[in-house]
């Protein structure tokens, strides 16, 4: 394992029409970190993930993943390099079974070389996220929490080194949320680096080793959770006074 950061983004820039969605964003993510990415709606969080995974091309700047320049890669190349992501709006193959969905990740992006091997890897990941009872059910029949688990299993089967979780916890109730938190901890324990995009501060503070704040496309603050949520700019842009106090206590706890 080298000491260089796993992901290094420098001067990243993206505009849609007249809107500068991402402005001169630079940051690094080290191996094994869980980095929380927060910011108001429309701050450019999802665009940033889209840039890193090749869904949209940057107008400027560079993205280095494990030392290699991946600025102009396409999504399937990102997947094969070990850059996996989940979607805010889940993206299953609806008429395929859960097992087939996950096997696709193992076969096309992971190390599996045959469909049989892919299904074996898929079965392991399905067990890991707790979806065994539904392995042979079509993905479309799953409930929302289970679809999110399917997204997890699919991205894990890809054998990622960096996993970007784009609001995987949105729409879950508190019991489901605890399960999801536990799952993310277990994924991190496998040595997978995680970027966590999240609005639920409970989740962000509970998991992140570091937090980055995006506002109007700019990275306004990055650092340890406690310092970030105490920063007046972050409070003004995103948290609000009342919540800042409450989260301050949470971070201290």
């Amino acid at each position: 394992m080298s000491k260089a950061p796993l992901l290094r983004v420098s001067g990243l820039e993206k505009s849609f029409g007249g809107v500068r969605a991402v402005r001169q964003v630079s940051f690094e993510v080290g191996r094994g970190e869980i980095v929380g990415l927060i910011g108001p709606n429309g701050a450019g969080k999802t665009t940033l993930v889209n840039l890193i995974t090749g869904v949209v091309r940057p107008d400027g700047g560079r993205i280095l993943f494990d030392g290699a320049d991946v600025t102009t890669q396409r999504p399937f190349q990102a997947a094969r390099r070990g850059l996996a992501r989940t979607f805010q709006i889940v993206q299953p193959f609806p008429q395929m079974t859960v097992l087939e969905n996950v096997a696709a990740g193992a076969l096309f992006a992971g190390k599996a070389t045959s469909r049989r091997e892919a299904e074996r890897v898929a079965a392991e990941q399905i067990a890991f996220v707790g979806l065994q009872p539904f392995a042979d059910a079509p993905a479309v029949s799953l409930t929302l929490p289970n679809r999110k688990r399917l997204e997890f299993a699919k991205s894990l089967a890809m054998g990622p080194r960096l996993l970007m979780l784009d609001e995987v916890n949105a729409g879950l109730n508190s019991a489901e949320l605890d399960n999801a938190l536990d799952l993310i901890r277990r994924i991190a324990a496998r040595g997978i680096t995680i970027i966590l995009i999240e609005h639920l501060m409970k989740v962000v503070l509970g998991l992140s080793t570091r937090i980055m704040v995006l506002h109007h496309g700019e990275l306004i603050r990055a650092g340890a959770p406690r310092d970030v949520i105490a920063d007046p700019r972050v409070v003004e842009a995103y948290l609000g006074q009342k919540f800042a106090k409450r989260y301050g206590r949470l971070a201290d706890a």
């Binding site: 997947a79 990740g105 096309f108 992971g110 890809m158």
Partner: peptide, 12 residues
């Protein structure tokens, strides 16, 4: 089934 998702799981 879902072309964008296929791209995301590593299908060229």
């Amino acid at each position: 089934q879902n072309e964008d998702a296929a791209d995301m799981v590593g299908v060229n």
